[in-house]
C-alpha cells in the first residue's frame, strides 16, 4: 500500500475539511438550539405548576420518541407541501437535531437541578431570595457542574447524528466521503478518512466540554488533581467528590 492512504487523504484534504466544517457548523447550531430548549424545558420540569410540568413532559416525551432523521425529512419535504414555506434543508436538519437532543438535555437539566441539595434552596428562602434569583445565583451554577459531563456526551451524539444531513443533499463529512468513495472506487480509504475526521472533531468537542467542566468545578471549590494538561483533558475528570458541607 505504501503511501497510497496518505496521498489519497492529502489530495482530498480540502474537500474533507469543507465537509468537516459543515458537520461542525451543524453541530454547533444544533447544540445551541438543543441547549436553549434543554434549559427552558428542564427548568419548567422542576416547577410545581402542573401546566409547566405538562408542557415539559409533553416536549420531552414527544421529541425523545421521534427519530431525528424522520423529523428532518418531514420538515424538509412535508412542510413545503402543507404550507407556502420551504425550509432550507440545513436549517431543517439543525431544527430536527436540536429538538431531538434538546429533549434528552431537558431531562439532564431537570435531574441536575433536582440533585442540588434541598438545603441550598432552604438557605435561599432564609435569605428571602425570589425564585428567579435563587435559580440564577445559587441553583443553576451548582447544577451546571452536574450537567456538563452528560451535555458533553449529548454534543458528541448530536455531532455523529448530523450525518443524516447527507441524505437530503447537504455536503457534510459523510457526503464528502460517499462522493469520494464513488468517484475513486476507494471505499475503504474514503470512509476511513471520514472516520478519522469525525474522531478528531469529537476530541475537540470533548476538550471544550472538559475545559468548561474544570471551570465549573473550580467555581464550586473543587480543584482538579495536579498534572493537568491538554492530554489530561481527554480523560474523564476525577474531581467531584469534595463538595462542601460537613464538619472537619
Amino acid at each position: 500500500m505504501g503511501s497510497i492512504p496518505v496521498d489519497f487523504f492529502i489530495d482530498r484534504f480540502p474537500l474533507y475539511l469543507e465537509g468537516a466544517g459543515t458537520t461542525f457548523t451543524i453541530t454547533v447550531l444544533g447544540t445551541a438550539l438543543a441547549f436553549v430548549l434543554a434549559m427552558v424545558i428542564g427548568v419548567l420540569g422542576t416547577l410545581r405548576n402542573p401546566v409547566a410540568r405538562g408542557v415539559a413532559s409533553f416536549y420531552t416525551e414527544t421529541f425523545r420518541g421521534i427519530a431525528a432523521l424522520v423529523l428532518m425529512f418531514w420538515m424538509a419535504f412535508s412542510i413545503p407541501q402543507i404550507t407556502p414555506y420551504e425550509l432550507d434543508v440545513t436549517f431543517a436538519a439543525v431544527l430536527a437535531l436540536g429538538l431531538n437532543v434538546g429533549a434528552y438535555g431537558a431531562e439532564v437539566v431537570r435531574a441536575s437541578i433536582n440533585a442540588v441539595p434541598k438545603a441550598q434552596t432552604e438557605a435561599t428562602i432564609a435569605l428571602n431570595m425570589t425564585w428567579a434569583r435563587r435559580m440564577r445565583l445559587v441553583i443553576l451554577p451548582q447544577a451546571w457542574a452536574q450537567m456538563l459531563p452528560t451535555f458533553g456526551n449529548l454534543v458528541i451524539e448530536l455531532m455523529k447524528a448530523s450525518a443524516i444531513v447527507s441524505l437530503i443533499g447537504v455536503t457534510d463529512l459523510t457526503q464528502v466521503a460517499r462522493l469520494q468513495g464513488q468517484a475513486s472506487g476507494q471505499t475503504i480509504l474514503a470512509f476511513g478518512s471520514a472516520l478519522v475526521m469525525y474522531f478528531v472533531i469529537a476530541q475537540v468537542l470533548i476538550v471544550g466540554v472538559r475545559l468548561l467542566e474544570r471551570r465549573a468545578n473550580r467555581r464550586l471549590g473543587r480543584t482538579p488533581p495536579a498534572g493537568g494538561g491538554l492530554l489530561a483533558l481527554l480523560r474523564p475528570p476525577t474531581v467531584g467528590a469534595t463538595a462542601t458541607g460537613g464538619a472537619r
Binding site: 438545603a119 438557605a123 445565583l137 445559587v138 451554577p141 451548582q142 467555581r219 471549590g221 458541607g245 460537613g246
Partner: peptide
C-alpha cells in the same frame, strides 16, 4: 436562620 449544616453556597 442559621442551619445545622451551615448551608453556605459552594459556588
Amino acid at each position: 436562620m442559621v442551619f445545622q449544616q451551615f448551608n453556605l453556597f459552594p459556588n
